[in-house]
Write a protein that binds this DNA or RNA. Structure first.
Lengths: 229, 229
DNA sequence: CCAAAAGTGTTTCACTTACACCCATGA
DNA sequence: TCATGGGTGTAAGTGAAACACTTTTGG
């Protein structure tokens, strides 16, 4: 058994796949690199960890620094550590994925004239490093997660209609759902608080607004309830 | 954007939770530390990564070096990077979990007079570092995974009886299953190859042996089949 | 012949699925 | 009054859960 200092150390970074929902489209936040390697290429936001912060803290800090988004949900995704994933040095990256409420972010504001932009998740430019693989992993994880944990709500505004919720699932799962069955199922779970409000400024009958009831979810979960779509 | 060498680097290790099934009991492989910190304490097998190997390669190498087990399954678990998880230095550890066929390992041989031993997963000694938390995470993951992926077979010998298989699920999931329903469900999946062999040396009616059909599983999976217990 | 585990079928109930029409509203 | 999406009920089918007895074999 050797002592620590005898071992060469890799760089450690965090990279985060930030998902947002923009009018029914799933988007990903990317940053255009200023420096080599891959100068000019789009990449996931991220950077080197500091010695006095946890991995998750590092992810949050980098996102705030680079893009100013406020995260609704953040979860560790996977750690990528292939030897040659960075051409300059050995770099291990701990990838996270995050969900944000784009409705609260003036999403288009971020993209003007800056090097930060939202891209459709299904149609991103060529990415730096192995970030395409990280994105792919994140998409798969989101798809799986959304089915058995109520994380989808983190993509919606606080108050939403059932149609918005259904569209969200259809977008993420990439298949159509039956309206009647979807509503029956979701309402029966008893996790949606029916509000005395309706959506505004629509050119047809306005839909009722709902809110996800976190306390009730926590309560039911303790009793063995299993969320599943 | 700064250059790499401006950043201090943490140590990076891999630690692996190795699960084995010993006569119906779920066991975990532990190693007794020879050096400080935590000299004398039991810990998960692991160690520092080399600059020329991937994370998974590092996990495999360390396991071979320290315990000589042959892995049936290896999957990345989670990366632990709290600032103070190692009292000496900043150490980020990428945790893996592994499944081995204990029947093929003469499990008790490893424990005599060495500092490597199998402990019941539900009853381990106080562990070094944050390894208790890593173990807990691994248990939760195994429990979740075993339900929707046929990884449980990696804990059994190549040929097994349906009762062995059921006991395995009962052990990992920590609840009893109905024999008739379990058999119906598993057999209906069509993933078990019924062999013309029976178990040997039992003092009662000998049970039929089965083998997990990997090719068929791969084939069905492509067609949209979903394994689920 | 007894102990021990292997092996098997049926009913009930809940949930999923498929499916089509009327309603409310703003333009 | 019309276009647009909001909102609802029912029947059929599928799968899960509950449940007990007979069979085989070795000792």
């Amino acid at each position: 058994m050797k002592y620590y200092y005898e071992y060469p150390r890799p760089c450690v970074t965090v990279d985060t796949v930030v998902f947002g929902l923009d009018e029914g489209d799933l988007k990903v936040l990317l940053i255009q690199r200023a420096q080599d390697p891959f100068a000019g290429r789009w990449a996931l936001p991220g950077g080197f960890i500091h010695m006095d912060e946890s991995l998750e803290d590092a992810a949050r800090r980098e996102l705030e620094e680079e893009s100013g988004v406020k995260l609704a949900y953040l979860e560790q995704l996977y750690t990528f550590g292939n030897v040659k994933r960075d051409p300059r040095d050995r770099v291990v990256t701990v990838a996270y994925y995050a969900l944000v409420k784009l409705s609260a972010h003036a999403p288009h504001a971020a993209s003007d004239a800056s090097n930060v932009a939202w891209f459709p998740a299904a149609d991103v430019p060529t990415l730096a490093f192995d970030h395409a693989k990280i994105l792919e992993t994140a998409m798969a994880r989101l798809q799986a997660k959304v089915r058995y944990q109520p994380v989808g709500f983190e993509l919606l505004p606080e108050k939403f209609t059932l149609t918005q919720l259904q569209k969200l699932y259809e977008t993420v799962l990439e298949r159509l759902l039956d309206k009647r069955n979807f509503r029956k199922k979701l309402l029966k779970m008893g996790l949606l608080e029916e509000l005395d409000e309706i959506e505004q400024d629509v050119a047809h009958r306005a839909a009722r607004l709902y809110r996800f009831d976190r306390k009730r979810y926590a309560h039911l979960t303790k009793k063995g309830f299993n969320f599943e779509i």
